[in-house]
Write a protein that binds this DNA or RNA. Structure first.
Length: 230
DNA sequence: AATTTCGCTGCATTTACGTCA
DNA sequence: AGTGACGTAAATGCAGCGAAA
């Protein structure tokens, strides 16, 4: 409300007074639709200033042969049209952002399922009877992971074995002679490389320091990805 | 100095009308 | 010619502000 009283602008009031309040114009009264020339000038002014100062309004009104009130109303309506267009544009932008996020989410969901499957296969192969020592050995386990995340403790793999998968530590697997497990890791890499979009771009963060790097230090993250309901 | 009134503005909503398919 | 959809000028109501009383 930056409207300050301006005696010059007050002219408009007297003009307004000539128009009876609440008067409805008859159908026969010639009105409406400013000329192309009038619209062109109004649009030109609107481009540089969306609000007219009272003096400028009077000047424009004189120039166009309109009532100052008509100019004021035109600017008012023009601002409203401009606002609704801007809202539409904002909506389209937000919608596009949402769609991108939604497709990222779907992709991540599928990758999660795939990784769970890989883990299950690895878990089964590691638990084979010919490798009993491996199952109970426990090499440099990430105790933080195991302690901080209940859902992790329920996982079929122990912490150190999961780390072997995540960081490509193949020592234990070679020790166990598990060529199959190595193939699984390769297939994961292939899966990533065949992704329609590079993972870094798709996820929006660096994989090495991001999703896998923080997996064991962020229990909430593990909880989230450990659940089946998303 | 605080309060009230007046006149103005802007905005949201509604109404009335012109235009077009 | 009649009609509905749409665009737009104008009306209406309300809130906020500054100036004057």
């Amino acid at each position: 409300m930056e409207g300050k009283y301006d005696p010059v602008a007050h002219e408009e009031l007297t003009e307004q007074a000539q128009i009876p309040w609440k008067k409805k114009k008859s159908k026969t009264e010639n009105k409406r639709r400013f000329s192309d020339e009038q619209i062109r000038l109004l649009e030109t002014i609107f481009e540089s200033e969306t609000k007219l100062e009272p003096r400028k309004k009077l000047q424009v009104a004189r120039e166009l042969g309109l009532q100052p009130r008509q100019v004021a109303i035109w600017f008012q309506n023009r601002r409203a049209r401009w606002k609704s267009k801007r809202i539409e544009q904002d909506y389209r932008t937000l919608r596009a952002d949402y769609d991108i996020l939604a497709s990222r989410f779907e992709f991540l969901k599928k990758e999660k399922q795939s990784l769970i499957l890989q883990l299950q296969k690895l878990s089964e192969s590691v638990a084979e009877p010919h490798d009993k020592n491996k199952a109970s050995k426990g090499v440099d386990g990430d105790t933080k992971c195991e302690q901080s995340n209940p859902s992790f403790q329920q996982a079929p793999l122990e912490g150190n074995e999961l780390l072997g998968l995540q960081f490509g530590n193949s020592r234990d697997m070679e020790h166990a002679g598990q060529a199959q497990a190595r193939e699984e890791l390769v297939s994961i890499d292939e899966y990533r490389n065949k992704s329609p979009v590079s993972p870094e771009i798709l996820y929006g963060f660096d994989l090495a320091d991001g999703i896998f790097g923080q997996s064991c230090s962020n229990p909430q993250w593990l909880n989230f990805w450990g659940r089946e309901d998303h």
